[in-house]
Simulated assay, not measured.
Amino acid sequence: MTILKAIIVDDEEFARSSLFFLLQQNCPDIEITGIARSVAEAKDIIANHPIDLIFLDIAMPGGNGFELIPEAQKQHAAVIFTTAYDQYALRAIKANALDYLLKPIDIDELKIAVEKVTQHLRLFQNKHETDERISNLANSLGSRSEIKKLTLPYGQGFKMIDVDDIIYIEADSNYSIVHLNNENKITVSKILREFEEILPNEQFVRIHKSSIINLNHLKEYNSKNGLQVFLNNGESMNISRRRASDFFEKIKLFTKASSDH
């Protein structure tokens, strides 16, 4: 069993000690080589010890957790973010397919997150890819703007796409098929609800239990054969009755926002 060296970075004493205890009791392949109360302390530990994994709090007094990213990237260390509930932060983390633990940390969620990260480190070793995902997250949280890029599990790694390139997403059992404007499509192991939580709310609308469309790619809609949308790629799709009022409300807001710009 390969032991991964990890550090915990959190300004809250209870959060540090409880995570340390949970890791010792439940994750035998993780060795905690340092515990830091601040970004400055963490930088010193990273500079003097080889690190495979960082449990990183995002919001800390005296320094944002993202200040550690350049140091983490130098050692190609994986990162599991630990955060209190912050809706935007969670959206950005999920959009970049990065691992996180929501405080207070659940034992089973901790085990799952550690297993995912250790498997990725051991099997794929795609360092550039992880670095880019973390950089995208830092940029998103720095600007607090809408999510612009999405990281999708693909084959033995991840594919990064621009949100604007998505035409629509269709459900396929426990999977979703993402259709892009270059006629490519990607099948990912996410359900539509997960995309609803991540994608910009005013740009994307769920028109059916099995489909979400990007309003930027909407060409027209009419009710000649039941309520339908027609997309720029030539495809047409039905709008379910229960989704119709939400669709028209989104159209109204989207049109207003477009005219304001």
Rank of each mutant, 00 (worst) to 15 (best):
R122M: 13
L231P: 01
Y85I: 03
D164W: 11
V163R: 01
P70M: 02
I161M: 02
A15D: 04
F248K: 07
Q87G: 12
E41R: 03
V9Y: 02
N216C: 10
R193G: 06
A138G: 08
I134C: 12
E13G: 13
S135E: 14
N126K: 14
A138N: 10
R193C: 04
H120N: 14
N233A: 01
D86I: 01
L192R: 00
V79H: 09
G157Q: 00
H208I: 00
S210H: 01
R16I: 10
K185L: 11
D57I: 09
I191A: 09
S189F: 05
A171S: 11
K252V: 06
D260K: 13
F254H: 03
S223K: 15
L199Q: 00
L98D: 05
N222W: 13
V205I: 04
Q156T: 14
A244H: 07
L19D: 08
R133K: 06
H128I: 14
P104Y: 06
K159I: 11
P70R: 02
D29Y: 11
A15E: 06
N48P: 09
K185Y: 11
A78I: 10
T255N: 14
L218W: 02
F248A: 04
Q73P: 13
I112W: 09
Q25S: 13
A77S: 04
K190E: 09
Q156L: 13
K256Y: 12
A77E: 01
I51F: 02
I213N: 00
K5Q: 08
R16Y: 09
D86R: 03
F158M: 08
I58S: 07
I80K: 01
E170Y: 04
E146A: 10
F66Y: 01
S245G: 14
S173F: 14
I191E: 08
L218E: 02
K250D: 04
E196N: 02
F55T: 05
D29S: 12
F21E: 15
L141E: 06
S189L: 11
H208P: 00
E194L: 07
N216A: 08
S223D: 15
S145G: 15
I45R: 06
H208Q: 00
L253M: 15
D10E: 03
R91M: 14
D52T: 03
P153G: 01
I3C: 05
K103C: 07
